[in-house]
């Protein structure tokens, strides 16, 4: 259930993440407010996943601070994350969603109906009783979305949810994400797909080797990139 206190804006204040001798994120300053989806764009290994984990509160920064609505101790009540390879509980599709509902504090009596609604929303109602781990990749991704949406998150973090999906499955997932954004959920999504930026993004955070190189509205980023790396990325050159 949605917490009374807002988790937005989500702020990273001079955040670095250093593991061993590797600097994964380097002095990131970022404020994400409500509104259209924010896409975290960047090549593999640029720190997108680590950034999302920090935003979820699953990892702590080596330096700097992450805050949610001004609080640094925010529990995960009003946030949800969709991992690149979501874990399917060894239960039916419906039981996976019901589990998410139970964790979000949904009263027992409402769970069956809410589960049905959520499965319907992601187009999996017909597969409700199928073991979750027997679903296809795209279906698993949609089921994980339903389970994340069960939390009625204020912020939904997604880590390249369509990276291994075909165009049809990608469109299906993007439709669900767009609908969630329309109903007021703040979407923060990692991607390395420019097409996805055109289709979904309100604003873009462009990350290269752990640094925020550009933070701009999607149209500015696509039409008038202000850094050579962003320009190269938009042109379709390989940014390493």
């Amino acid at each position: 259930m949605r917490a009374a206190r807002s988790d937005l804006p989500l702020s990273l204040d001079d955040v670095s993440l250093i593991v061993g001798a590797t600097t994964i994120l380097d002095r990131v300053n970022l404020t994400i407010g409500p509104g259209a989806p924010t896409l975290i764009l960047g090549p593999n290994g640029s720190g997108k996943t680590s950034l999302l984990r920090l935003c979820m509160g699953l990892a702590s920064p080596s330096r700097g601070a992450v805050s949610w609505g001004g609080r640094t101790d925010g529990g995960p009540e009003s946030r949800a994350i969709l991992f690149q390879k979501p874990v399917m509980l060894r239960r039916s599709a419906a039981a996976n969603v019901a589990y998410g509902l139970a964790q979000a504090g949904c009263p027992r009596g409402l769970r069956a109906r809410r589960t049905e609604e959520l499965l319907d929303r992601v187009g999996l109602l017909a597969l409700a009783l199928r073991p979750a781990r027997r679903l296809s990749g795209g279906e698993q991704q949609r089921l994980a979305l339903a389970r994340a949406l069960a939390r009625q998150p204020e912020i939904l973090l997604l880590d390249e949810p369509t990276a291994s999906l075909d165009p049809a499955a990608t469109r299906f997932v993007e439709e669900i994400v767009r609908a969630a954004a329309h109903s007021g959920t703040k979407i923060v999504m990692a991607s390395h797909d420019l097409g996805q930026v055109r289709r979904l993004a309100g604003e873009v955070v462009f990350l290269v080797r752990g640094r925020v190189v550009e933070h701009a509205s999607a149209s500015d980023f696509l039409d008038r990139p202000s850094t050579p790396q962003a320009a190269a990325f938009v042109r379709g050159d390989l940014v390493l």
């Binding site: 699953l58 995960p76 994350i81 991992f83 979501p86 874990v87 509980l89 239960r91 589990y99 964790q103």
Partner: peptide, 25 residues
Amino acid sequence: HEYREELTAMGVGPTGQVATLLWDS
């Protein structure tokens, strides 16, 4: 090892973790 991040992200407490892992194995 497989469930850790997902359960943590869902805010599952220690008792819930034990119950979930036992049931799923």
